[in-house]
């Protein structure tokens, strides 16, 4: 992918982000948009791990949980500013990913899936059971980021929805930019190479365990930052953020959109975040529909929505 294509992709998403609010029937949709961007951020991280490096994680919500609770706990207990708490959460997630990634990334396929699943469940159990600290399953409140009041002081009055829509959009764009940079870099190419053939990757001097670990840590940081933003924008957080269903949602979004494509992953996140909003009936059957979508995509569009559409269009063009 050339540099030009990278900027075209980023411009398309930025343009959509800018134009969309003109069609919002009410201020509520800023909130929905902000949620789409947060989910897309963690899915873009997953694309790096799953799409680039070919490693599965069924426990990435664990890192989202760490990011979320860092923002809930660090300001009250350590007196840190919530913005600094985002960085702290990312740092803890990265350190933890480094620690657990070393042993579990030796595993392949299902085994890696189960090991990461175990990690996710562990985090969500700790968050549920440490009542004294986290308030248990009932969750806990998260302090305000404080940026909006800063803007107000500067004479810029915007609603909470508008603020989070804007902030998350900017963070997501940065996340996409970094993921696309990685794609066309030596490290990203090494990730995609070991995805194709580990043994061949080694013969060109690629340190396979190290590159896998880098992908794991980077994607953990994405999930952590997304978790932090989610906690801050909701002002409240429960252990569900680290739960198994959240991990499955992330993977489904990635697979639906196209796990090898950053743009596709964003699309997948948008669709699966919007569906329950559009079809309220969907909420009760969420898990059922998630499963169904997963099965259908795997059968009919194994490369995901966006890459399949692009391939179809190209095929027609030739």
């Amino acid at each position: 992918m050339t540099c030009r294509r990278k900027w075209i992709q980023i411009s398309i998403i930025a343009a959509i982000m800018l134009v969309l609010p003109f069609f919002f029937p009410s201020g509520y949709y800023y909130r929905v948009g902000a949620l789409v961007f947060v989910n897309a951020l963690s899915v873009v991280g997953l694309v790096i791990l799953v799409g680039y490096a070919g490693q599965i994680s069924l426990g990435h919500a664990g890192f989202a949980g760490i990011g979320a609770y860092a923002c809930a706990l660090a300001p009250t207990h350590l007196g840190l500013h919530p913005a600094v708490a985002i960085l702290l959460g990312a740092l803890i997630s990265a350190a933890l990913a480094l620690l657990i990634g070393r042993p579990i990334l030796r595993l392949k396929g299902y085994y890696l899936g189960v090991a990461t699943l175990g990690f996710g469940i562990l985090v969500s159990m700790v968050l549920s059971n440490e009542r004294a600290l986290t308030g248990g399953p009932d969750g806990m409140s998260v302090p305000d980021l404080g940026l909006r009041s800063l803007l107000r002081d500067m004479g810029w009055r915007i609603s909470g929805g508008e603020f989070w829509y804007g902030l998350n959009a900017v963070v997501l764009l940065i996340g996409i930019w970094i993921a696309l940079n990685l794609y066309q870099s030596a490290t990203g190419r090494a990730m995609r190479a070991l995805h194709g053939s580990e043994v061949a990757a080694q013969t060109v001097g690629i340190d396979v365990p190290r590159i896998k670990l880098q992908a794991f840590v980077i994607s953990a940081v994405y999930a952590s930052v997304a978790g932090s933003l989610l906690a801050l924008q909701n002002g409240f957080i429960t252990p569900e953020v680290a739960g198994f269903m959240h991990s499955v949602e992330m993977v489904t979004m990635a697979v639906l959109g196209g796990v090898g494509s950053v743009l596709g992953a964003t699309l997948g996140a948008a669709i699966l975040t919007l569906l329950p909003q559009v079809l309220t009936v969907f909420a009760e059957y969420e898990q059922l529909v998630l499963g169904l979508i997963m099965v259908l995509v795997m059968i009919f569009l194994p490369r995901g929505l966006l890459p399949s559409i692009v391939a179809k269009l190209r095929g027609r063009g030739e």
Partner: peptide, 29 residues
């Protein structure tokens, strides 16, 4: 043992890994 989903050129560029690799932050940014 080919990197099937990469382009032909990228396969060879991947062969230059040892020449090309550098600090990861530089790659990310």
């Amino acid at each position: 043992q080919i990197f099937q989903e990469m382009t032909v050129l990228e396969n060879v560029i991947a062969g230059f890994h040892l020449t090309e690799r550098g600090p990861i932050w530089a790659d990310l940014l």
